[in-house]
C-alpha cells in the first residue's frame, strides 16, 4: 500500500517534470548564450491584443538577436498576481524589463529594486507614475477615444443619443477610453446626448446583454461606442439580436470579428492601436537603453481610425491583428 502511495507521488512528479521539460524546450534551448534577455510583464495574456504585442516583441527580438519572456495575469484586476510576476522576473536577473503596470503605484518598490540592480525598465501600454522607466511606449488612449467620438459625431451629423459599453471601470485603459470619448462629446457635440456608461467587463456575452437592455430602454438610440474588442463584438451581437440596423457602432481595437463587421457594414469603424508595433518598439527601446543610448521620455505608438474605406490600406493592414 505504501508502495502504491509513493508510486502515485512519483507518477505525479514525473508528469509535472515532463511537462516542464517540454515546455522549457524552446526557451532554455535558445537561451544559453550571451544574447540580451528582456523580461516582459504585461497587463494581460489571453487577449488578442496582448498576444499581438507579444508577437511584435518576439519578431523584433529575433531580428535583433535578443531573448524575451512574456507573462501577464489572467485578468486586468489581478494586481497582486502581476506583482508576483514582476518579482519573479526580477529574480531571473534580466538585462532589461518591459512592464505594463496595472496599478503603477503598487509597483514602486519593485521598480526601485530594478533600479538598484541597474536593470533598465521600459514602461509600455500605460505610463508608470515614476521617473524610473527609461521611456514609456504607449498609445494615448484618451486621444484615441476622442477620435472615435469625433467619427461617431460626424456620422450622426452632430445630433442624437449615444451609449457607451466600456470594458472596465477600474483600469486606466478603461477609464481613459471612457473619459476621452465623453469629454470630446461634451466639448464638441452639444447636440448629442451621452447616456451613462455601462460596464461589461470586456466579456462578449455580458456586453451583448447590456446592449440589448440599453436598446429596449432607449428605442431612439442612434449610436454606441464600445471600448475594446470584447465589448465591440458584444455590441454588434446585441444590436443584431435586437433586430436593429439603424444604430451606428464605433469600436476599439481589431480582431477577426470586428474586422468582418466593419467590412460588411454592421459597424461604422474603430480606432486601433498598433499592438504589434508596440511590441517591436518596446524591444527596440530596451535594446537601445542597454546600449546606453538616450531615449525620449515617451514613444507614441499612435492610433489609427479605420473603416470600410481604408481597411485594405497596407498601412492599416499592418496594424490590425486577427
Amino acid at each position: 500500500m505504501k508502495a502504491r502511495k509513493i508510486g502515485a507521488a512519483l507518477a505525479g512528479a514525473a508528469v509535472a517534470l515532463t511537462l516542464a521539460a517540454c515546455g522549457s524546450g524552446d526557451a532554455s534551448g535558445s537561451g544559453g548564450g550571451e544574447e540580451p534577455y528582456i523580461a516582459i510583464v504585461s497587463k494581460g495574456f489571453q487577449h488578442q491584443f496582448w498576444q499581438a504585442v507579444k508577437k511584435g516583441a518576439e519578431q523584433e527580438a529575433q531580428k535583433r538577436g535578443a531573448r524575451i519572456t512574456f507573462v501577464g495575469p489572467a485578468t486586468e484586476q489581478e494586481v497582486e498576481e502581476q506583482m508576483n510576476m514582476l518579482t519573479n522576473a526580477l529574480a531571473k536577473q534580466p538585462d532589461a524589463i518591459g512592464f505594463a503596470a496595472l496599478d503603477s503605484r503598487a509597483a514602486a518598490p519593485l521598480l526601485n529594486q530594478a533600479q538598484s540592480s541597474d536593470i533598465p525598465v521600459i514602461a509600455f501600454d500605460s505610463g508608470v507614475e515614476s521617473d524610473i522607466p527609461a521611456t514609456t511606449v504607449a498609445t494615448d488612449n484618451k486621444a484615441a477615444a476622442a477620435e472615435a467620438a469625433k467619427q461617431l459625431s460626424e456620422r450622426l451629423g452632430g445630433e442624437g443619443k449615444v451609449a457607451l459599453v466600456v470594458h472596465d471601470q477600474t483600469s486606466l485603459s478603461g477609464t481613459d477610453r471612457r473619459d476621452g470619448f465623453v469629454e470630446w462629446m461634451k466639448e464638441n457635440a452639444p447636440g448629442i446626448t451621452v447616456l451613462d456608461p455601462q460596464y461589461g467587463g470586456g466579456d462578449q456575452l455580458e456586453s451583448t446583454n447590456i446592449t440589448k437592455s440599453i436598446l429596449s430602454a432607449n428605442p431612439d438610440l442612434d449610436g454606441i461606442y464600445a471600448s475594446n474588442e470584447g465589448s465591440a463584438i458584444g455590441v454588434i451581437k446585441g444590436v443584431q439580436e435586437a433586430g436593429r440596423d439603424d444604430v451606428t457602432i464605433v469600436g476599439f481595437d481589431s480582431g477577426t470579428a470586428q474586422i468582418e463587421a466593419i467590412k460588411d457594414g454592421r459597424m461604422a469603424g474603430a480606432v486601433t492601436q498598433n499592438p504589434i508595433g508596440m511590441g517591436e518598439q518596446l524591444v527596440d527601446a530596451a535594446l537601445k537603453a542597454l546600449d546606453g543610448q538616450q531615449l525620449p521620455k515617451a514613444i507614441d505608438t499612435s492610433f489609427y481610425w479605420y473603416d470600410k474605406d481604408n481597411i485594405d490600406d497596407p498601412k492599416i493592414r499592418e496594424v490590425l491583428y486577427e
Binding site: 508528469v15 516542464a20 522549457s24 532554455s28 495574456f45 510576476m85 519573479n88
Partner: peptide, 18 residues
C-alpha cells in the same frame, strides 16, 4: 515555472496536474 521561463499556458496545466 516562471523563473524557468516556462510559457504561461503550460504553467496552469502543470498546476492542475499537481
Amino acid at each position: 515555472l516562471q523563473i524557468m521561463s516556462i510559457p504561461q499556458e503550460w504553467q496552469n496545466v502543470i498546476l492542475g496536474c499537481v
